[in-house]
Nucleic acid binder design. Structure first.
Lengths: 239, 239
DNA sequence: TCAAAAGTGTTATGATTACACCCATGA
DNA sequence: TCATGGGTGTAATCATAACACTTTTGA
């Protein structure tokens, strides 16, 4: 199957051979105002015109599926250092009405501060939705989203991936609210502080919050180097 | 793409349309003599003749990928009530040397007591290997196996799936040894007993072990009904 | 009577929870 | 001075780990 692509270098349309009957769909998570959000795109053509769905695309014959997912994300958001992980393949025979197509689901965690919708996508094409205010999604994208949320909940408790949704520098309260939102629980502030600080995973900065109308909180950042060293010593992140 | 299949009803060869460039490969786990094992098949033809790999197959155009995996397992082992779960899709462009093929990995947990290699598969075609005595596997099957083990370790701590590898009736020591083998840890017998019994997940039988040269242990069985009821009450299995 | 595993009891330690309380800061 | 969140302290409770010990059974 031959599809058109925009070449990254020249900006021209080029033709590439892509895998037949296999697509990629990606749940892109963001976090803002204490709420978890998902980036949806509106289909501009075809039978589902006007409806919202997950951003997706084809896999080139010469690239790995992970690369295809990265490329897709970059084409859409202009960001390249995102956390990206495969969910699984979704393949009910009737999931796509026109043909038998299997899709491979991914989920991404992005820092919304870095995010920019790329030229070519306008506000009416793509926008963020709070996860409890999602519209109906096309095909089986609702199922894919549901699975991605389950996976995110699991992952966030077993590996320090939540930071990918926060700004570079964050307060402990922001971190706690992220966990509360993702896991859908209420947490105790003092206990959360101690639990997280005891892991010695966070690097405390000599810097405080600015522009808040209350005592400014200390800022922290997650340092992958520290995590790596702790892991080598047998540390196992668990929340 | 048209491939031959053995029809379940008539036993005759029939032709079915299958998905192109997508396969299924399955890691089948068994447990015997305190050891975790995997069922491998020897390729009888093609470029990898004589080498060992995971059992795999094609997906019919009309069936879901889960159904395809179930069918594959039944064709190979004659068992139909196995625990089966998708891992993810594996799709490095060079994973299969002759063509670009993406495979969807599955893993299954079977009770070896129920297991029987189906006619057509002889001992030289298919056999069990202890997981630390695996031969080199074809293509990326080694990677798929490694991922499946990671997944199994994860799963067995978060859901009561280990029972699928044990006989219907088992002792607490057998269960403990299963956990020791899967998680690759040493456990304390008294503590393991208490921890598991406290969950009230197991149904104690009025029956004891037979033919052992020491005090016979009480037999237990896992009751999915009990688990369901506990879950509804908010219970969350965790080991 | 001995080995091997079944099964019970006990204690120390550490994690988790719940909640009271003081501190700093801008409106 | 008040509201808002930052941040510390503490006691009760619960889970886990370590290990000593008694019991049962066939060889």
């Amino acid at each position: 199957m031959i599809k058109d692509f925009i070449d990254e270098e020249s900006g021209e349309k080029v033709k590439h051979a892509v895998m037949n009957a296999i697509t990629i769909d990606c749940v892109i998570f963001g976090f803002e105002g204490g709420k978890l959000e998902v980036l949806l795109v509106q289909h501009g053509q075809g039978i589902s015109k006007g409806e919202w769905g997950l951003p997706g695309g084809w896999i080139k014959k010469t690239e790995s599926i992970d690369s295809a997912a990265h490329r897709l994300l970059q084409e859409l958001t202009d960001i390249d250092d995102v956390y990206l992980e495969q969910l699984k393949a979704f393949g009910r025979p009737d999931r796509y009405p026109l043909d038998r197509v299997i899709t491979i689901g991914y989920y991404a965690l992005v820092k919304k501060e870095d995010y920019n919708v790329k030229a070519g996508f306008t506000a009416s094409d793509a926008r963020w939705y709070k996860i409890n205010e999602l519209p109906d999604l096309i095909y089986d994208h609702g199922e894919i989203f549901k699975f991605s949320l389950k996976q995110l909940r699991q992952k966030v408790r077993q590996a320090p991936v939540g930071f990918n949704l926060l700004p570079e520098k964050f307060t402990l309260l922001q971190l706690m609210q992220l966990y509360e939102e993702i896991l859908n629980v209420e947490l105790d502030k003092p206990n959360f502080r101690r639990k997280f600080l005891k892991m010695k995973l966070l690097k405390g900065l000599d810097e405080k919050q600015k522009g808040v109308s209350h005592r400014a909180a200390k800022l922290y950042k997650f340092d992958p180097e520290i995590y790596k060293k702790l892991t080598e010593k047998g540390f196992n992140f668990e929340f």
